[in-house]
Amino acid sequence: MFSYIVKRLGQSLLTVAIVIVSVFLLLRLMPKNGYFTREDYVSLDKEARTAYLRNLGVLDDPFTQFSRFMSGLAKGDLGRSITVYPRSPVLEVIRDKAPYSLWFGLAALALSMGLGLGLGILMARYKDSIVDGLGTLYVTIVRAIPSLIWLFFIQQWVTALLGWPMLFYEDRPISWILPTISLALSGIAWYAIWLRRFMVDEENRDYVKFATAKGLARGRVMRGHILRNALVPLVQYFPQQVLLTIAGSLLIESIYSIPGMGGLLVNAIRQQDNPLVQALVLLYAVLGVAGVFLGDLLMALVDPRIRLADARTKGGEA
């Protein structure tokens, strides 16, 4: 187990390093005219434009820029934004925005899991019944209709019906409900449909038939055997889903005017804000890789059949 963790940590670090270097180099390939508007071209001559770029730090050679980024990183300084929020420390921008995405994301994840797993269990337990049919209908609707349509419906009509605010307000908890539900809708469908599928798969396994033949109650077979094993493949994604909530949702945050992280990376790329792009890519790469890594570990913990590297070695010795 230990050597497996060390190996995976090494792989993870390598992945993060590759992502950072690639993004860094790609940013340097972008044309510099994105820093100027039409009026800038009229009012600034070439020398003045060059001076502006030099002061942004984007004319230094890539090696200098990279070492500046890395030495700042070592000191916990991610630099300052250059175009999206000129001169604001990147860490401050992330610190201001991340909590919104994180709390909404976690609340939506909890809701997705609670309702989605519950629905999945019901659909599997009462397979081919009306419950299963209604669940499938819900999943089909959520996945088939473009999210913009139902998000618009919820925001315009549900708020009008209930008299709730159309936007998110930090000091009005009632305004937190619809964005959370909107964020959770597809998650509920995802958990429900996959759990149902894995449970139905498990239900047809020999060990289940054996347990049933032994006379175990259906409820106990469901809870103790089928559900536990069906959760294993879903557990793998859990850490990643938790960690990446910080990235926010571009669509829902912009619809409800939630000042979170959704859209920040897109804006930063569009406006060629290199320090901000680098910091965000680093953050998401680390969280993404950590999520996969933790997912694997968690799977090994909940599934006795998985023994990772150490187990295989032991098996070999036997």
């Binding site: 618009f152 925001q155 315009q156 009008a160 605010p165 159309m166 936007l167 912009s254 619809i255 005017s257 000042p259």
Partner: peptide, 18 residues
């Protein structure tokens, strides 16, 4: 001044007195 990207929301908010 509130940040609102969607003009439809802006109109609906006006209609609701916000």
């Amino acid at each position: 001044l509130q940040y609102v990207v969607d003009p439809t929301v802006e109109v609906a908010m006006f209609q609701r007195g916000e």
